[in-house]
Design a protein around this nucleic acid. Structure first.
Length: 283
DNA sequence: TACCAGGGCCTTT
DNA sequence: AAAGGCCATGGT
């Protein structure tokens, strides 16, 4: 990949095995919006950019080369060898079909705190509503940024809030869970930095110590916020995939990357809902 | 063990 | 237009 500047835009050339739209629209992130000019705009970990894809070129504005190299390339997972990975996945007929159905989905590297909040909001909820709650959350408690949507609220700021303060979010019973997360993170009772270095089970135990974080949310935080590619969040769709397509369990050779495989399987299942919606009957 | 809580989007009727 | 399904966690 190489970066060149042209007409006030910054071009990242030589991008392959990547589909920007699918990656931003597959349910792992909630703060990207597709504009009428084809650009996606979003804020992540305090960085804003507008970006669109033209085949193997990503066209950026509102950012700079340094930020693309240091932040956006790792954020989009463009430093990983998806050519080899998807080739590996294709040795399994099910996964081969899922990857071919929607190629180019990459696992984003998101901020752990932002991911924790986002997936607390996501529980028992649907994507359009999650996006609305997070937008109101950032507008109300984040810091205004110049020419961009506001930053994500910090745990310290949030720890000062009460559930009444969060009422405008209309996040229902999740508000109290969010406050517990903010209090535990800002006080140091939960140290997100150290979670990144733990084995998966220890990390899970720490995260589920937050009220409102169960196994599913904890695994989402590990996969999306800590890039733990071996972790597979088991929501209803993945349970259906498991019972329908992998009754004997996920294939062992993919274990270290099963979280990435999950992205393709999840998307495939949701897009073929009719084939999966019925309970399989094997209790 | 089974059920309910907040709520809004989606699909089916 | 209206009704019912869906959803992850904690509490009863």
């Amino acid at each position: 990949m190489r970066i060149i500047e042209k007409n006030n835009q910054i071009l990242l050339q030589g991008v392959s095995f990547f589909d920007l739209g699918r990656t931003l629209d597959c349910g792992q992130c909630f703060r990207w919006n597709l504009c009428s000019d084809g650009f996606w705009e979003g804020v992540a970990a305090g960085h804003f950019c507008r970006v669109r894809q033209e085949r193997t070129v990503l066209i950026f504005t509102h950012t700079d080369r340094q930020c693309i190299r240091k932040f956006w390339i790792p954020y989009f997972g463009l430093d990983e060898d998806y050519d080899a990975l998807c080739h590996h996945f294709s040795s399994d007929p099910v996964l081969c079909r899922a990857v071919r159905f929607a190629p180019g989905i990459r696992l984003l590297r998101q901020d752990p705190w932002e991911t924790l909040c986002s997936f607390i909001f996501s529980q028992n909820n649907n994507i359009p509503r999650i996006r609305g709650i997070i937008e109101r959350f950032c507008c109300l408690f984040g810091n205004p940024l110049e020419n961009s949507p506001p930053s994500f609220p910090t745990p310290e700021r949030l720890a000062l809030c009460t559930t009444e303060d969060l009422a405008p979010l209309r996040s229902g019973f999740r508000a109290k869970y969010l406050l517990d997360a903010a209090q535990k993170v800002s006080s140091g009772a939960v140290d997100l930095k150290s979670v990144g270095h733990m084995d998966a089970d220890s990390a899970r135990r720490v995260l589920t110590g937050i009220c409102g974080v169960g196994p599913k949310v904890a695994d989402c935080v590990l996969l999306y916020g800590f890039h733990r590619t071996e972790v597979v969040p088991m929501d209803v769709w993945m349970k259906r995939v498991l019972s329908t397509l992998y009754p004997d369990g996920f294939p062992q050779p993919f274990a270290p990357y099963m979280g990435i495989a999950q992205q393709y399987l999840f998307h495939y299942a949701r897009c073929h809902a009719a084939d999966f919606r019925q309970p399989t009957g094997q209790a």
